[in-house]
Structure formats: C-alpha cells, structure tokens
Write a protein that binds this DNA or RNA. Sequence first.
DNA 1: GTTAGCACTCGCGACATCGGACTGCTAACA
DNA 2: TGTTAGCAGTCCGATGTCGCGAGTGCTAAC
Lengths: 343, 343
Amino acid sequence: MSLTEREIDILSSIIESYIQTAVPVGSRTVARQTSLGLSPASIRNVMADLTDQGYLEQPHASAGRVPTPKAFRFYLNRILRLSPLPENERHFILNQLGVTGPEITDTLRQAGRVLSSISRQVSMVLAPLYAGVRLKRVEFVLIKPRLVLVVLILAGGIIQKKLIDLEEPVRTDDLVSYANYLNEKFVDRTVAEIKAHILSELKGTRELLSSRFSQALLLVQQTFESGDEPRVYVDGTTNILSQPEFTTLRSIRDLIQALEDRSKLLSILDKVMDSKGVLITLGDEGALTQMPELSLIASPYTVMGQTLGVIGVIGPMRMDYASLVPVVDYTAQTLAKILSDRF
Amino acid sequence: MSLTEREIDILSSIIESYIQTAVPVGSRTVARQTSLGLSPASIRNVMADLTDQGYLEQPHASAGRVPTPKAFRFYLNRILRLSPLPENERHFILNQLGVTGPEITDTLRQAGRVLSSISRQVSMVLAPLYAGVRLKRVEFVLIKPRLVLVVLILAGGIIQKKLIDLEEPVRTDDLVSYANYLNEKFVDRTVAEIKAHILSELKGTRELLSSRFSQALLLVQQTFESGDEPRVYVDGTTNILSQPEFTTLRSIRDLIQALEDRSKLLSILDKVMDSKGVLITLGDEGALTQMPELSLIASPYTVMGQTLGVIGVIGPMRMDYASLVPVVDYTAQTLAKILSDRF
DNA sequence: GTTAGCACTCGCGACATCGGACTGCTAACA
DNA sequence: TGTTAGCAGTCCGATGTCGCGAGTGCTAAC
C-alpha cells in the first residue's frame, strides 16, 4: 500500500512543479526535472500507478496530472522538509512588528499585514480571548436608570466592555460599592481565575443567602462572555485574486463571501488553538470543507504557556509550503514575544 | 445651451433604460418606451445632438448610446423626482434597526447591513467622532511605570481609550488626583466643549505656571485626537460583484483594493459630513476620482443638530437613484432617531 | 524492467463567417 | 420645416472549423 522510493520521487517532483506553475504536469516535465535518469515513458508508467492510487488526477484525457488533496497531505507529512527562515526575512518581520504602537489590536493588525505582504496570500489573525491576562480594574458606569456600562481593564491596556440592561434600577451608590468589592477581590488575578471563581461563588450563593454582590458577579460574567470587539482580522484579500485558480467570477464571489462571514472564519481558526506549532488544514478536511480548493497554514501564538490566539494565511491548496510554513511559524513566535513584553 | 423639452424626454428615457439594463440604448428602444409618438429616425437626430453636447457616448460606431456622467448629473438635478419611501420598506428598516442591542457600534453595523441588503450595493457607514456627546467619567490606569491607559467614558456607553507612553514615570497617586480633578471639571460636558477648554487652558499654562494638571489635560487631549476604533464599516462587498460592469478581473481587483483602504474611504465619507440630507457624488467629481465608474449616495445622520456620521451606498454610476435615495435618506433618519434615544 | 515509437485524444487559439443591432444619410412626404 | 422610410455601412459577438501541441496508453523491441 505504501509508495516505493521512485513513486515518492516522482510524486514530489510533480507536486513541486504544480506548486510553481499551477499547470497540470506532464511526464516530459518530470523527466527533465528529476535526476533519476528515466525516460518520459517510464515516468508515465509510474504516474498511471499514482493515479490509480488516488494521488493524481487528470483534468482531461490528454492533459498532464494534477496532485489530489491526498497527494498534498502525503507531501506535507512525508516529503516536506522545513528549513529555518533566512536571516533577512526574520529581520524584516521583526522590524515590521516592532514599529507598532502600544495598542494590542494595532500589533495584531500589523502582524496580519506583514504576513499577507510576505506570503502574497490572504492573512487571518484571531485575536486573544485574554483568559490568562490579569485584571487591573473594574468600573461600573450608570448610563441610564436601568442601563449599566461594565468596563474591565486588563493588563496590556486591553479593555472589555459591555452595556447591560437591568431588570431592576440600581443606584449609583450600589455600583460604587460593587466596584470596590470587585476591585479588592479580583485585581491582579487572571481572567480565567476570575471566571472560575465567579462560577463557584454564584453556585453557592443561590443556595445560601443571596449575597448583595451576586449581581456584581453576574455583570462581570456577562461582560467576559461576549467581548464585543471583532475577533478576526483579515488582510490582503486582493492577493488571492491574482492566483490563477481564481479566474471565474463565481469562484471569486464565493471566496469573498466566505471571507466576509467572520463568524465562520472564527470557528475555523478556533480549531487551530489546540495545536502545537504550525497546523496545515487542507480544504477537503475538517473545518475548511466550505472551501475545498483552499488550504490554511496557521499557528497559535502563546505567551507564557497560554495560547492567546491564532495567526495564519489562507490560499490555494498549491501554496508554497516550504517557504510559507517557516514564515507563519516565525511570525507567530515573534508576535508572541512582542505580546509577552506587554503584559 | 439648455436642452429642449424633447431632448430632456429622450435623455431621461435613455438614462432610465440604461439604469435598468446596463446596456447601450438604441433609437428603437427609446421610440418604443417614450409616448412621444416619434419614429426611431427622429429619435436618432435628437440623440446625435445630445451626443454632440456631451450627454451621450457611443462605445463603438454601431452601438447604442450610453449616458455620460454629465447626463447623470443633469438627470439628478433636473429630471429625478423623488417619492417618499413606501410604508412597507419603512417598516422593514425600522424593524431591522430596532432589534440591535445597546451597543452603538452594533447599531451602526446593522444599519450598514440593512442598507446593503435592501440596495444590493455596497454600504458604508462612517462612525461618529462624538464631538457633541457628554463625558461620563475619566479613568487613568497605570499599566507600567511609563505607560498610562486613559479611558474616557461617554454617554451612550461609548468608550474612547488610548495607551500613552510617558517620558517621565508617574505615580499612581498622581493619576488618581488627575482623574479626580478631571472628573470634577469635565463630567457632563460635551467632547467639543472639553476640547476647546483644554486648548485654551494649555495655552495659558505655558506662560503662567505649569499647573500640575497640565499633564492630565494633555493625556485627555491625546486620547480625543486618535480614537483607535475603526471608523468606517463596509458591508455587502459581494453585491457589487453581481453588477454587469464588474466582469473583468482587473476592475474587481481595483474595487476591492479601494474598499480595503479604509483611510481613503474615510476621507470620501468625510466630505459628506457638511451636507444637509442625501448627497450624491458621481465618480468624475470630487472625492471619488479614484473610482471613475462609481457613484456614492450618502447622507449624514444628525442628532439634536449635531452631525454624527455618514451612511450611504456606493455602486456603479447607473444605480437606481429613484428608489435608493429615499432608502438612504430614511435609513439615515431612522439611525439618527435610534441614536438620539441612546444619549 | 526500460524505452522508443506510434496512434490517438483533447483543449485551445487562430481564423473565417454570419446575423443582428445599431448608425448616419438621403430623399420623399405632410 | 420637421418627420419618416429606406438603405448602405459598421461593428460586435456568437458560432463553427481547423490545425497545432501537449500529453497519454499501448506495443514491441532492447
């Protein structure tokens, strides 16, 4: 069932050629490219075998072969050898990411911009949920008798805020004492800790006495639940329009529609959160089934053991993994380093 | 120099037909559509005149006529008669805008979504700069010894925040007294008032004694200057790809590139701020020169005499102004009404 | 097992053709 | 004088044909 050495050589030659040109690869091309010293005719025999095994496809009878997703998966798992990113590219990324101001969202956006400009693909950045970040201050502001603005200020200058409609009016005095209580209790603890604490506290309260602060806890909880900022940044949409696979109006429209639906992108990127290092998702697998032609190279970025978010590029399946994987990897690491300085 | 009655009839027939079909209009078509009882031949004479005067163009010798921007301008100024938006559309817009939560950005985004779905064009929303909104609270949070987070909480639950690098370290105590000072002085005054006040104050200070609060004023000023949230929302990009004028890859790429450059969009929409009611900008005029094929229907939305922002649609020059202008107009008014309830 | 040779297939660009939708012009008409 | 029928002319775009080139699979010889 597994491939012979020669089959692997030929398959990888076909894939590499296809990555470069996006054009079906014929036996002549392979014969010229490989150093096996085989004639096109012999190559053809092997190619016929690979086609039978599902690694190659023919668009039509007299065309060359195109690698299938199965072939790309094989290539990624077994053939591809990654080399570290060259020094000058490292330099470029480090410089570009260093120039951003102190705002985290700026840095994330900039990372996306850098990535899309280097890769010439569409970049996507999933912003942190800040579970591991420490709380600096809680504020309540009474906007109207039954409308409270909750402001949670986190380390690194991150703000989570939410407007909450109350069923009962509250007095400003109450809000002040809520805030004092929470500040005393929670400042300098991480979001995750606070969440856990609130949960257990509320469970207890319901059975014991309804603490006068349970409402305060609820307000904080609700604010954590739905951060209202955008969580996915997309950049470089135009890049993908230059790819030869996107020539028909139909395919472009589908793609742009997909990129506009941020909630779907979010769920796609979310799948990468648990990965260690760069994860490559091909279009026919997992979360990307909506876009069978595409593939995603993405990596989580983690600060002090905490995975904050995901950064990556999305493009046609025949992307240049050999150079893009190191780029994504290094960008994720650099981003993590920069963010860790902020907290 | 001005057009005869007959020329106007024929020109408007051509424009209306072109708006519907996006296809060059021939003399037969006009003859059938108008109730003038003229033969195609007579129409042709008039069309030749209109062409000489710059109102019509021929893509090629044996094609029909296409209206020039000059013709559209004439149509908008002299021919178009607007009727009020039908009751059911009003209802729809009102309902859709009513369902949003208390967050202002949500409401703005929703307004954009409604507009793009009704108009089947690309919608753009310029978010308020909040000059007329009242301050509710000022907070300073020391993130690091020389990094301060300034948080300005405004009416309606709006937050302006900025991280500011200081040259000298400050102590938390100082920040607290800063905040107290500012809260006492500025709460419940509008952003515009505060800006004006700070400006005059700082001028005075420099010459007299350097008040210990001049730094606080500077911090607030800097925060006002650069709100870091996005200020332009774009929705319905896919709609415009269905328009027959966007068939070539080139034109699509240009368009999407233009829509990605938010700072340019911002400056385009900014031009509409001073207008009273709906303003139509054709591609060859003013701010839209970058996109000569397009036209913008936009209206400011004003609350209590204060113009907050702009909402509108952008599309090919041959948009259906007769029905879209009322839609934009009504959406802007409804948005204003909803926002005014928030403050 | 490898390879040269060959017949065959198919997509694609080049080229020609044709119909249709226009126009402008002219001459006749009310 | 304005209007209209008629007509020649123009141009686009759809359709059809053709040949080339790239590539294949098979066979027979090495």
